[in-house]
Write a protein that binds this DNA or RNA. Structure first.
Lengths: 129, 129
DNA sequence: TATCTGTACTATTTGTGTTAGTACAGTTGA
DNA sequence: TCAACTGTACTAACACAAATAGTACAGATA
């Protein structure tokens, strides 16, 4: 479910943040669902517990999850706000990428073809972002 | 013309690479045009000559520029291949970004609106990519 | 009470980007 | 010819962020 790619240039804790936020927005992780403990997830992914905690800490700051000391970390009960926030975030990243595409000489039609390709083919993808 | 943003997380040498490649693809830098010398550009941008050289070295490896030892660095005479290569590169980045947008719940129509926004408004942009 | 849980903290390591400095050979123009 | 450019190569040092290692303590739970 939750994965990291050591070859990716993006820091592990950021991968975790985006990964879990996406799973929450998609509803794959349900509100109030219990997340793996810091130590357990660290063991599963073979990375340091401090790195997990750093990700959880940031996710709590973003209100994607909440923590009950001694109990664990849980997905936020209010996902609507998170979803809107995520859509704005992805939209901004997409805008700069589209401007680069325009500079590279890609036509509006080529981009729409690309969109249709992504939206029609219901293929699973490894990476997001 | 050639600029860098110290606040950007992207390494300076990568900014230079993308910056110059874009200028070449756009035709703002013409084929066989003389680029600033390593030391001169370093002085202009107030960064280390080694950083400039690193960027030039990679640009030569990508055949975006060529170097004549003792004379200087010049934009490649063959820009068509570079342009196609750049379009593939930007297209792939865009694809992963679109997949993230889909995961976030953005509709196909919302994305087309975003494209139209980018392609209609002929506004200059600071960042690319 | 043993064993989970989150949390906090310091120290260390690692990798990458950047700077600093030097050196040498090819090119150019006065 | 020679001074002043040019690219290129190299080592050393520095800066910073990410990640690891280890310890500690309080709350929750069965």
């Amino acid at each position: 479910m939750i994965t990291v790619d050591m070859r990716d240039r993006k820091p592990i804790y950021e991968q975790l943040i985006d990964n879990i936020r996406t799973l929450a927005v998609q509803g794959i992780l349900q509100p109030d669902e219990h997340l793996p403990s810091v130590r357990q997830l660290a063991a599963e992914l073979a990375i340091n517990p401090n790195t997990i905690q750093k990700a959880y800490q940031e996710l709590e700051r973003q209100h994607v999850i909440y923590s009950l000391p001694g109990r664990g970390n849980f997905i936020s009960g209010d996902i609507r706000g998170i979803t809107e926030q995520e859509q704005r975030r992805v939209g901004e990243l997409l805008r700069t990428q589209l401007q680069a595409a325009k500079k590279a000489g890609l036509t509006r039609e080529a981009l729409i073809t690309l969109i249709d390709d992504v939206y029609h083919h219901a293929q699973n993808v490894e990476k997001e972002e």
